[in-house]
Design a protein around this nucleic acid. Structure first.
Lengths: 193, 193
DNA sequence: TCACTGGCTATGAAAAAGCTAAGCCAGGCT
DNA sequence: AGCCTGGCTTAGCTTTTTCATAGCCAGTGA
């Protein structure tokens, strides 16, 4: 196979399957000229960046709302469950709601909020990824669409209704809503050196 | 508002917006009768369950492949970067490939593999979630579909081509491929007490 | 009033994640 | 041969996560 002396060879994508990263466009193309301050992924991980938080959110999405349910279903320790439930409630992913069974005293339920439920695509994507790549056999449970019975995964989708192939995803400077002008990365990131 | 003494009131979903968890069906409906052993989400977190792993995968998807690039772009420490790169390579998400610039000695590049690239839906979902719920202003960058320019997120999608509303997602026992018979949870989970 | 109990908190400990700083070393150039 | 340097590793440390265990306490029923 002939080799190339092209200085840009490293930046090119010689083989879609070989190095399938997304394309950085505009001023983002030079990745070392900007920092990923205010990264939304890191912002998400500020709330749910521990293994125990993921597991608790899994059970919240599976319908758990009471402290004892989280204890039984996650196998995490009580101090950790209490701490995570408090943090997730303070962050708005769960809402503490008093409820009372007849003959028993008032307790609190940790109800899933819209903010918490909106993690379903992320957890579904991890569910699919883990199923495909990590488990040696199919898991005993699967996610399905109750309307039609089809299996559910998370896919990349654009606002124009296209299923987006990963090779056609690009990272670009955020555009102002009104005129489409790209915002300077530093414009929205005055913090941090 | 009248209250109900219905014993099943807690299990019902009185308000779709109030408690938007997914529906457990079949023998999974009694959540305390099975354990989430071999959970694909936990299996995924075995590989990528640290904040630093997420950040490194972000940069790999943004095109980083050299050790120094990960150092500059993540602000993580070198020992941690080296450890995570080794672990992600051993797990198959990155592939170590020697390359050589003219006049320089051979180095290794950490190339994204198909397995690694398949985390894009999960990272995109976290990107969207963080954008919507955590950042006080829009991030300076956005994900777009290069074919049409539309913004990209992760959505729930079923194998029959439907965009799936979260309220129509269910967790069900995995069906055998041939005859659709559900597998017993213990069938695939002989391990762990 | 007393016993019970669900939902925590407190304590101490272990392990993991992450950091700073220093150092090693192989291989390229002079 | 010697110097330089990118890519690590090592050592020591801090912080975070997580655990086991014990205990507290408010509120309910007897």
């Amino acid at each position: 196979m002939p080799t190339t002396d092209d200085d840009h060879a490293e930046h090119l994508r010689p083989d879609q399957g070989a190095d399938p990263h997304i394309t950085l466009t505009g001023r983002l193309a030079d990745r070392d000229s900007w920092r990923a301050d205010n990264c939304p992924i890191v912002a998400a991980l500020d709330v749910i960046g521990t293994r125990s938080a993921f597991v608790i959110m899994r059970e919240a999405l599976y319908g758990a709302s009471r402290f004892e349910q989280f204890v039984k279903r996650t196998q995490l320790s009580e101090p950790i469950i209490a701490t995570r439930l408090r943090e997730l409630t303070e962050a708005g992913l769960l809402a503490k709601e008093p409820y009372r069974e007849p003959g028993e005293r008032t307790r609190n339920a940790y109800r899933l909020t819209e903010k918490g439920a909106d993690l379903l695509p992320a957890l579904t994507a991890l569910f699919s990824w883990g199923t495909r790549w990590q488990l040696s056999s199919r898991p005993p449970v699967e996610l399905a669409h109750s309307d039609c019975g089809g299996l559910v995964t998370s896919v990349l989708y654009c606002e124009h209704g296209h299923i987006v192939d990963p090779s056609t995803v690009e990272l670009r400077p955020t555009r102002n809503q009104r005129d489409g002008t790209a915002r300077s990365p530093s414009e929205a990131d005055p913090k941090r050196a």
